[in-house]
Design a protein around this nucleic acid. Structure first.
Length: 428
RNA sequence: GGAGAGGUGGCAGAGUGGUCGAAUGUACCUGACUCGAAAUCAGGCGUAGGUGCAAACCUACCGUGGGUUCAAAUCCCACCCUCUCCGCCA
């Protein structure tokens, strides 16, 4: 959510910055609603003030045993008038608030203006894709004999689910463990274990609601509030500070969580249907930081570096992309995507997305700290995948495959794998 | 699942219809005393919003949402959450 003051004071430049990301702000509508709101709010408050003053007089008169019927007669008509004003005000504030909630974040000034993902800027390219002297297989073909089973998953649940067996499942677990240990030990994040089902308020806090309801899995309950399956650990972790005023000396807050993520992929029919690139359920290790505003862009750089450190330790070639205005998510002010090399697709594919949301999320959730002057100020939130576990597994399979269909296990993962150095295909 | 208790300011805790945005304590800030500190004394100390150049004034908020009333922290209804005991349970 943007600061409404910004819209009141300088809606033209806000609209200009928003149009760079393809969002056309209805400035006429906002200005109209806002002008009406001002009039009606002032009127409402005047009526309330009158009522309060008179009620006080009645109270004083009665406590002295005097007759208050004169004052009471004077404001007898006030009730209906006030009720009408309050109703009118509420009827204005609802659409005003809905409009405000539907406006995406302003892109940071360093973000390239673009029309599509074609305009994203490559910041760096690390590692060299390996030269293969045999025809490369993709992770589906490789996985067939290594324990990757889509048929059974689809029998159990349906399309866009996967099932892992044996050492492949263990490798998946090893990746998550390795990432968690690296972030807690080397990068000083606090590990948290969080709910995978959250309430609507939390979804509003991080920006999934009200606009992206169709992307979420719902869990209706007969005798209780509806819950949602988390699409990313960003939701429960960032909402830890919802409504809190964090003591300044505790900042920055740095959390890491390993959770499954659930996405309906409603708008993705037909895209990435092969393999485990795009699933309804996948695991992710998520990094979240809550920092003072002046440090948030530095924090975005270091957090992105923490995600990169995993790719580097695993020896996976990747590139770092600075997303252009059009390709960024709704809540982000600036985003880096990390894209890992997938030899079978002969391309780089997103494996991590690291964003600075500035105060966009924390304003919605009123997550604050006490600034130098003692006044509460909004925190900035930053998060990023460090990394998506399923896609990392895919990258390992494809980049570390051997001619015989086996897959070498990267050095750093072997301690988590009981010392074995390769996944070996089954005979059949 | 059954029975009960309760949600008030950073914390504790009073307040059952009227000068209550809320006593008191504590924490915190400022000042006085002190060489300094402690103790003591005095003052200050919630959040959001509106009008205004400002000073200031006004409005809302006592778990959430409705309702009754001239007036609600206080009465009524619904919901959410927490705690205790019993039962069940990974």
């Amino acid at each position: 959510m943007l600061d409404i003051q910004l819209l009141r004071n300088d809606i033209k430049s806000v609209a200009a910055r928003l149009s760079s990301r393809g969002f056309e702000l209805d400035t006429a509508e906002f200005t109209r609603l806002e002008a009406e709101r001002k009039t009606i709010q002032t009127l409402t408050q005047e009526l309330q003030a009158k009522r309060n003053a008179s009620s006080k007089q009645i109270g004083i008169a009665k406590s002295k045993g005097e007759d208050a019927s004169a004052i009471m007669a004077e404001i007898a008509h006030l009730g209906d008038e006030l009720k009408a004003a309050e109703t009118a005000l509420a009827a204005l504030q609802a659409p005003l608030n809905a409009l405000l909630m539907s406006i995406p974040n302003l892109p940071h000034e360093s973000v390239a203006i673009g029309k599509s993902e074609e305009d994203n800027v490559e910041v760096s390219r690390i590692g060299t894709p390996r030269a293969f002297d045999f025809p490369v297989k993709d992770h589906v073909d490789l996985g067939e004999k290594l324990g990757l089973d889509f048929e059974t998953a689809s029998k159990i649940a349906g399309a866009r689910f996967s099932l892992l067996r044996g050492n492949l499942a263990k490798l998946h677990r090893a990746l998550a463990q390795f990432m968690l240990n690296t972030h807690t030990d080397a990068h000083q994040y606090t590990e948290v274990y969080v709910p995978y089902l959250v309430n609507a308020e939390s979804m509003r806090g991080t920006g999934q609601l009200p606009k992206f309801e169709e992307d979420l899995f719902h869990v209706p309950r007969t005798d209780a509030e509806q819950l949602y399956l988390i699409p990313t650990a960003e939701v429960p972790v960032t909402n830890m500070v919802r409504g809190e005023i964090v003591p300044r000396e505790q900042l920055p807050l740095k959390f890491v969580a390993h959770t499954p993520c659930f996405r309906s992929e409603a708008g993705a029919y037909g895209r990435d249907t092969r393999g485990m690139i795009r699933q309804h359920q996948f695991d992710k290790v998520e990094l979240v930081q809550l920092v003072e505003p002046e440090h948030s862009y530095a924090a975005l750089e270091t957090l992105t570096g923490h995600a990169e450190a995993i790719l580097q330790a695993l020896g996976l070639p990747y590139r770092k992309m600075a997303l252009c205005t059009k390709d960024m998510g709704f809540s982000a002010a600036k985003t880096y995507d990390l894209e890992v090399w997938l030899p079978a697709q002969n391309t780089y594919r997103e494996i991590s997305s690291c964003s600075n949301f500035e105060a966009f999320q924390t304003r919605r959730m009123q997550a604050r700290f006490r600034g130098e002057n003692g006044k509460p100020e909004l925190l900035h939130s930053i998060n990023g995948s460090g990394l998506a576990v399923g896609r990392t597994l895919v990258a390992i399979l494809e980049n570390y495959q051997q001619a015989d269909g086996s897959v070498t296990i990267p050095e750093v993962l072997r301690p988590y794998m009981g010392g074995i150095d390769a996944l070996v295909p089954t005979a059949s």
